[in-house]
């Protein structure tokens, strides 16, 4: 989808400000929002592409006005509702009931993430790379063009490369295709390549001749030139 998340090449957001000695989290709610997202992902009801797609569906004005973990929180609420864990209305109702919700100790169900499971969860290899024997459509050195496509669902082809020509730098092997994986319509295994786009091809003659942007793109995003 052509959403507010697809930021590459936009102007007007101001300078990049590095924060000296930045903490990992800036507030307790960020810690909890992060951990809730990872823990609920452990139920296996949605994949990473579905998580990304959920965050991208935040209304554009809201997306640009909120911080990173607010995007996560918004996405988590969507996924919890969609998968029948918790309706957003229930969160709203709890908020109306009282400023400081109480926490009732309930033994967590079988399947809920336990402290002892955390190292295994974080070290598991997830299923993005696939072993399917899919032949590559391209090889390093091939000239390609990123397709001019505008899917309304989740996609990982940024707007700034669509219709632009580049050269395959390397073949990374076979991976899940995010467009179908986010929609729950299949893994559609295919090769991912780093494609080098000269800065001038992307941004015009004012860009420097010796600069380039390398973008990881799937077979379905590319045509031969």
């Amino acid at each position: 989808m052509n959403g507010a998340h697809d930021l590459g090449g936009m102007h007007g957001f101001g300078p990049v400000v590095l924060e000296p000695d930045e903490p990992v989290f800036h507030a307790e709610w960020e810690r909890r929002a992060f951990a809730l997202t990872v823990a609920m992902g452990g139920w296996g009801q949605w994949n990473l592409d579905m998580s990304r797609h959920a965050r991208e569906q935040m209304p554009p004005a809201e997306y640009l006005a909120t911080s990173y973990y607010e995007h996560w929180l918004w996405g988590l609420e969507q996924l919890l509702e969609r998968h029948g864990f918790l309706a957003r209305a229930e969160v709203a109702e709890r908020l109306r009931e009282g400023a400081e919700p109480t926490r009732t100790a309930v033994p967590s169900r079988a399947g809920a993430l336990r402290p002892a499971d955390v190292p295994r969860l974080l070290r598991n290899r997830r299923a993005a790379r696939l072993d399917d024997p899919v032949p590559p459509k391209f090889k390093a050195g091939d000239a390609v063009m990123a397709r001019n496509i505008n899917p309304t669902g989740h996609t990982r082809i940024p707007r700034y490369v669509r219709g632009r020509r580049g050269v395959v730098d390397r073949d990374h092997g076979v991976f899940v295709f995010p467009d179908t994986n986010a929609a729950g319509t299949g893994r559609k295994p295919q090769h991912v390549y780093s494609v080098a786009f000269p800065a001038r091809e992307l941004w015009g003659p004012d860009a420097r001749a010796n600069d380039a942007v390398y973008v990881d793109l799937w077979d379905d995003y590319l045509d031969p030139v």
């Binding site: 809730l36 823990a39 609920m40 139920w43 919890l80 864990f85 918790l86 926490r103 009732t104 100790a105 309930v106 033994p107 967590s108 169900r109 809920a112 993430l113 336990r114 402290p115």
Partner: peptide, 8 residues
């Protein structure tokens, strides 16, 4: 989520 046993 805690009350429903979905997170520890």
């Amino acid at each position: 989520l805690t009350e429903r046993g979905l997170v520890d």
